[in-house]
Nucleic acid binder design. Sequence first.
DNA 1: GCGGCTTCTTGACATCGATCAAGAACTCGC
DNA 2: GCGAGTTCTTGATCGATGTCAAGAAGCCGC
Lengths: 189, 189
Amino acid sequence: MTELEKYIVATMGVADADVQRIASFFQPITLLKGEYFLKAGRMSERLAFVQEGILREYVVRDEKEVTKWICTKGYFVVDLSAFIFRQPARFNLQALTDVELHVIDAANYKRIGEVLPDWNELEKRFITRCFSALEDRVVMHLSMTAAERYDLVFAQRRELFNQVPLHYLASMLGMTPETLSRLRARPVQ
Amino acid sequence: MTELEKYIVATMGVADADVQRIASFFQPITLLKGEYFLKAGRMSERLAFVQEGILREYVVRDEKEVTKWICTKGYFVVDLSAFIFRQPARFNLQALTDVELHVIDAANYKRIGEVLPDWNELEKRFITRCFSALEDRVVMHLSMTAAERYDLVFAQRRELFNQVPLHYLASMLGMTPETLSRLRARPVQ
DNA sequence: GCGGCTTCTTGACATCGATCAAGAACTCGC
DNA sequence: GCGAGTTCTTGATCGATGTCAAGAAGCCGC
């Protein structure tokens, strides 16, 4: 069973027969380290599930890259707004390691609704969870110091800190690489 | 035509007969300045449209109130996660002025789907727009200084700055009231 | 219109975090 | 295993923002 199939079972409580059918709408693809799943400004009508590897979601602002999120196994990668509204992508999605994805295009995505009767509800719940996670993130930035943000994210996603260049994590945490380095070197924590 | 009905027409392209029908699922209520639409920790199965007035969405963290958002005419107020998952509310919604709302409960909300055939799609698009706005807000905190954040939000929602106590706006912008005061007093801007 | 509360500003100062610069440590291709 | 590039750390310094404190200004009930 692929990670994707496990995910479907775990979060959607779908019958075994349907799991296979849904998973079959996805195509496996591989990206090499450095390649892009999505480039800002381009149209993209696809969404993918991360089977293996790490990607970085970033936007360019004043010639600087701002890393918005790091996606690992079990995440969906997509510019949701671009996917739903069929607009040019607003951000970039680049592989930080070789990556295995399961990709689905908008047409096949639509067909999931025909297989799963309550797909709309599941979809809504999924987006709501994403929304809620972002709410938490905003509150984090409104109320926590750099050290507190580091401690929180380190506790939640420790594995990132030995797999991803730290300057990307620093950007995702809203601080400079130097500050992140000094936080890591703190005496006690 | 109420603000709510205008909103429905503007964003959903619904036939006139349906507009009335949908709007009829909502009940008008009034809150006095200081009263709560939602209290953190309590169950709440309702959502409201702001017809008139201003509310503040905040969470308490380390005994401090963190203002997450200020809602004015035309916004929906709801703890989305609590509403969708029927969980206790995570934040507070308090009236900053006397407020007129159109309220709908979960049961009536469900009935909208029976009136509007593509309600699921509209709902998804609405939540996606909210998600996208939050993405922008996270990027704002990752990449902008306090002065830049102030300038941006001031440009977008100037009317707030003479209607809402500034310490709430300062909190929403992720800075202290003193810093906000100094930014406002800057020579040129 | 007075007293008391809240809000807003201002100043002095402390602290956090950014910047700049250098070098150490670690890839990775050859 | 060598060299070039990247990543990471460390130090010195600077600027932005927070903290603390005081007072001014605005608002409201009586």
